[in-house]
Design a binder for these strands. Structure first.
Lengths: 347, 347
DNA sequence: TTGAAAGCGCTACCAC
DNA sequence: GTGGTAGCGCTTTCAA
């Protein structure tokens, strides 16, 4: 617990000299530099970042607010963000809002109180008064979820294209009764996925019956309930496009519970890929998002802007990055009726 | 960006009075309290936590160092830790060491520079000089991974018992050729799991051939390579006990690649449970750890100790919590030869 | 080249 | 009750 004073005393110099050496300001004689460095080592001195930040008006800390860390999608995004942050000397304060919109506000207030230099945000809720925040407090980059109409800095994927391509795949397999379990329609990602789905059906002159459009909330439970509902319909769909990983999990649970098999009885295509999707049966066909890359790019954009502002930038920015998802065709999707090349592992 | 001075000026009081109101010290007249509170709201004032921490000598921040956030095990532990921390007014600085031992040291130094009040640590590497750290810097609680011989505060599960029970399950199914893919033997969790495995075999008078003991490193790749090796043996095992989730994933990949089926050709039992383990085929039999609870308890122990020290506690503590894992029998384990009740989904 | 001193925003002590 | 003031550990002028 030594301070700069202890170092100065031991080296027989002033604290200003120690500070100059620490920050490599130059202009310190080799003689004194040497003495200071010896003292630094002798005391195992570590500068107090908070005191430094108080003076320098920056904390080298970024706040990350996400809805649910136990969702691998977000865990991977955070991982990508942290890799970039650490390589540039920043640390992360992690805030999990637990899909509770009111926690977003609490978390942002807390981050402001800690004077983070910027925030990466994937909101749990469509927020009002966000403009006030982003303008008055700190630079914010949105990841994955952006409020409709929001026109600020963000990193997203082409949700429309991903859903469109996914649905086309189902259509090309010969499905005509295609259902979807959509996510919360208050964010662009869910809206765009539903639009992509619609567009593909429309182009193929396929109808979208109301009962085939289930509105979930990204959570497992809603996938499960929607799945049960869809599969118990008098005329159940032969293919289901699930708009998030957790809902896909719930859906598979419903499939299992009803004693159905995938893809023989129903094809399942999910948004978000997993490590395990390729090694268990059915091997899931998914729209994979570049999660690590999303976190990485979002953090890069944020830190670039922060450093830009430190060099006198005016804070006008609204960069947007749209990454491409990738359709990974495995064997949870097959032609309706259970025939076709993509059989399950059954012999 | 208002300071306590702005509030004081607007309310027409001194900053000391504002501070007293902010910290509910009492001894401020209703009249002034009211004026201060109005000013607080009018300016949307948020106290500067760093300045506060500099003075108060605590930051209300806990460092969390884990090997890999994209491992759901750790993500869930962090989630449990954060829930507890937030409810007690602490924030988390998250450090992912990426299974790189040298990063542990870097991360701990960084956390010290930021004067976190304590650290939750799941090391990537057996560290030397840890005693110095824990004594001189901040309270540390270990989670899941503890160095052999370490006798400080920690939250772990009964790894020996979990592995023992798991192996007994395989034995009770009639397996005699049982292999294991062990984790890195530099941590107690891996050591204990191997010991539990050994003990169960021994009690059943079953031999453990050298070739049936694969030494992995907790990573997917090592599970894959070990799996390939085991399953290509002239006399391959009929059951494999994999000591971590990622290695189990690699093992399943090897099973698939060799065109084998689980549990018909080989039973697989994994440590760590997943959301999806119950809904895909084979439904994995696993030893489930109470991940959220581990993070929760570890954080509680840490914060209790921090608060104890603030109240004059002497810092002598070495509490240990050992939680119970749970064997979840599904259908990736079955009697050797592929008969038995737990068939895969194949018809 | 070096060091004294003024803060950064806050808490807490001590006069009034 | 209230407010002035001395720091917390650091950076950064500005004199010397």
């Amino acid at each position: 617990m030594h301070t700069i004073h202890d170092v100065a005393r031991l080296a027989g110099v002033s604290i200003a000299t120690v500070s100059a050496v620490l920050n490599k300001k130059g202009g310190v004689s080799a003689e004194l530099t040497d003495r200071v460095e010896k003292a630094l080592v002798a005391l195992d001195y570590q500068p107090h970042q908070l005191a430094r930040g108080l003076k320098a008006r920056r904390t080298q800390t970024i706040g990350v607010v996400i809805p649910d860390l136990t969702n691998t999608f977000f865990a991977e995004v955070v991982r990508g963000a942290e890799d970039e942050a650490r390589s540039r000397g920043y640390s992360l304060i992690l805030c999990d809002s637990n899909e509770d919109g009111s926690m977003d506000r609490t978390n942002l207030d807390n981050l402001y109180a800690r004077r983070v230099d910027g925030v990466l945000l994937s909101p749990s809720h469509v927020m009002s008064g966000l403009d006030r925040l982003s303008q008055r407090r700190f630079p914010i980059v949105f990841v994955d979820r952006i409020p409709p109409g929001f026109d600020g800095p963000a990193v997203v994927i082409d949700n429309f294209g991903g859903a469109y391509q996914a649905t086309q795949h189902l259509i090309s397999l010969g499905h005509t009764r295609i259902a979807t379990i959509a996510g919360r329609q208050d964010f662009c990602n869910a809206i765009d996925r539903l639009e992509g789905f619609r567009k593909a059906l429309q182009e193929a002159d396929l109808p979208l019956h109301d009962e085939y459009l289930q509105r979930g909330d990204f959570q497992l439970e809603s996938g499960y309930r929607s799945g049960l509902h869809l599969l118990r319909l008098p005329k159940p769909p032969t293919a289901i496009f699930s708009c998030s990983n957790k809902m896909t999990l719930g859906l598979m649970s419903a499939v299992t519970e009803l004693g159905l098999r995938c893809p023989e009885n129903v094809s399942v295509l999910g948004f978000d890929d997993f490590d395990w999707a390729a090694n268990f049966s059915p091997r899931l066909t998914t729209v994979a998002q570049p999660t690590h890359e999303m976190g990485h790019q979002a953090m890069r954009m944020l830190l670039d802007e922060i450093q830009n502002r430190e060099h006198g930038g005016n804070g006008n920015w609204n960069k947007k990055v749209m990454l491409k998802p990738e359709l990974r065709i495995r064997n949870s999707t097959a032609p309706p009726g259970g025939s076709g090349p993509a059989r399950a592992s059954a012999s």
